[in-house]
Design a protein around this nucleic acid. Structure first.
Lengths: 249, 249
DNA sequence: TAGTGGTCTAGACCACAAA
DNA sequence: TTGTGGTCTAGACCACTAA
C-alpha cells in the first residue's frame, strides 16, 4: 500500500502525514496495536525518517500514540479524554458535550489600566485596554461570566460587532495573527457574589469557580480573563504535559 | 567565545546545550534580547543545526524563549510565571511560594475497584488497587485532602513507609520507572462536606475546590486522584500549551 | 542478533522580515 | 538582497527490547 503523500497546498509534509496516520488509526487500528516502524512509514509514504519523527512527535504530544524505545510505536487506548484541547475553548468544549454554546457580549469598553490591572497584564498603568464582559451559555443555560482585558495596542480597531460574529480566539488568529505560546490558568473556589449570582441565575449558596487566565504571545501577556462559573454545573478540564524541565532533576 | 560542549556522561547533546543557553540567558541577557541565529549557535558550540533546533524547541515549550520567523529567537520577558511546572506538584509549588510543605499519609490500604472506581481508572471492576489518603500542609496549615487510587499491578510492593519517605512522583520515577505522557485535570467548585471540613480545619461555609487528576502512561491511566482544597487559601495554577490539533482548523 | 526508537550530522531549499 | 526560522533529505551510530 504505497500511499505517497499528495502535495497539498501549503501544508508541510509532516502535517499531511499526521492526518494520514490519524485516519489510519481511526479506521483500521485497535488500541495498543503497533504502528509500522519509523523507517517503514518513511518508505511507505516516501518521506524521510526525520519527517516521520516530526509527525509522530506531534501525535505523541496529542496523546494519540505512545512510543517505547526498542519496542515500537503504539496506538493510545484512551477514549474519553481524547482530543481534549490543551487549550480550553468554551465553544469547542460545549460542542463536544453535545450542547449548543452561545456567547453574549454584555459590554465592551475602552479604558486605561489602573494599578491592579496593570500588574495583572504586566504593563504600565494608564495603558489603554479593552474591557469585555461576556456571558456564556450552554443550551441557553448561563454557565460562565467572563471579563476579559486586552491591550488596545495589540488589537487595534477591535469592536463589539466583531466579537459577536466570531469567537475571540478565531478573531485573534485570523485578524491579528496572534500566535499563542502558552497560557497560565489559576483556579479557586469562592463564594458567589451578588452580581455573578444574578447573571448566572442562581443562588448565592452555590459556590463559584473563579478562573484566571493569562495568555502569552512571544513571552508577553496579551489577554487577562477573570471568569466565574457556577459550581453546580460547570467542570473545567485541562490537559497537562510534563514540563521539559524535568530533564534537569 | 568558542565554548564547545563538554561530553558529559550520558546526557544528550541537545540537553547539554539547553543548560548552556539557560545559563547564558540568566547571566548575561535581557528580556526580548535576540539570541544568536541557529546557524551561529551551531558553529559556536560545534553541533549541527538540527541539534540546536531540538534544544530551542524544548526551551520554547518551557516558555523561556520565543521565535519569530524571519526575525530571530528571543528571550521571553515573563518573570512571575516562569518555570511553573506544567505538571502540578504540591511540594514544589509550596517551596516556590516559600512555604514548607508537609505530607501526612492518613491511611494506606489495598482493595478491589468497585464499579465507580473501575470506570474512573478504565480498568475491570475487581482489579486490586491501592487507596491512599493524604493530608497536605503548608507551614503546618492544612491545605489539601487527597485520595489517590493506583493499580497494584503497576506498583507492586508499594508501602506506606515508602510514600512517607519520598514524594509520590519521585517514587514513581525512581522505583517504578514511570514515564508520564500527560495528565487530565478537572476542577469544580463544591460545598465543603463534613469530613473535608474537619480535616482541613475550616467551616463548611467555606467552599472547596474539587480537583480530579488522571495521570497517563503509555496511553493508560496509572493514577486517579480526587482532592479537595480549601477555597479561602488555595489557588491552583496550571500551565497550558496550545494543542497540536490546531493545525487542523 | 535483529529490530526498534533516540540522537546527531551536513547539507538543501522555502517563507518571511527588514533594510 | 540578506539573514532569519521552518521544512526536508539521506545517512550514521547509539541504547534498548525481545527472541
Amino acid at each position: 500500500m504505497n500511499a505517497s503523500l499528495a502535495p497539498k497546498e501549503g501544508k508541510p509534509l509532516y502535517s499531511l502525514l499526521m492526518q494520514k496516520l490519524l485516519k489510519k488509526m481511526a479506521s483500521s487500528m485497535k488500541p495498543d496495536e503497533r504502528l509500522p516502524a519509523e523507517r517503514e512509514i518513511s518508505l511507505q509514504y516516501g518521506v524521510s525518517r526525520a519527517t516521520v519523527r516530526q509527525a509522530l512527535a506531534a501525535l505523541e504530544r496529542m496523546g494519540r500514540i505512545y512510543r517505547v524505545q526498542g519496542r515500537g510505536t503504539f496506538v493510545s487506548p484512551q477514549k474519553v479524554h481524547q482530543g481534549l484541547p490543551g487549550f480550553y475553548s468554551f465553544s469547542t468544549a460545549m460542542k463536544k458535550l453535545g450542547k449548543t454554546p452561545l456567547s453574549l457580549v454584555l459590554s465592551f469598553s475602552e479604558r486605561e489600566a489602573e494599578e491592579y490591572l496593570a500588574e495583572k497584564l504586566k504593563v504600565h498603568p494608564g495603558l489603554p485596554i479593552y474591557q469585555i464582559l461576556r456571558l456564556r451559555l450552554a443550551d441557553n443555560e448561563p454557565m460562565l461570566l467572563e471579563t476579559s482585558y486586552l491591550p488596545v495596542e495589540r488589537f487595534p480597531g477591535l469592536t463589539k460587532q466583531a466579537l459577536e460574529e466570531s469567537t475571540m480566539y478565531r478573531l485573534f488568529r485570523s485578524r491579528y495573527g496572534v500566535e499563542i505560546n502558552h497560557a497560565i490558568e489559576a483556579f479557586q473556589s469562592v463564594q458567589t457574589d451578588a452580581r455573578t449570582a444574578q447573571y448566572l441565575g442562581m443562588s448565592r449558596a452555590v459556590p463559584s469557580l473563579r478562573i484566571e487566565r493569562f495568555t502569552y504571545e512571544r513571552g508577553r501577556i496579551i489577554e487577562y480573563t477573570e471568569s466565574f462559573a457556577r459550581g453546580d454545573q460547570f467542570v473545567y478540564t485541562v490537559r497537562l504535559e510534563p514540563s521539559a524541565k524535568e530533564e534537569f532533576s
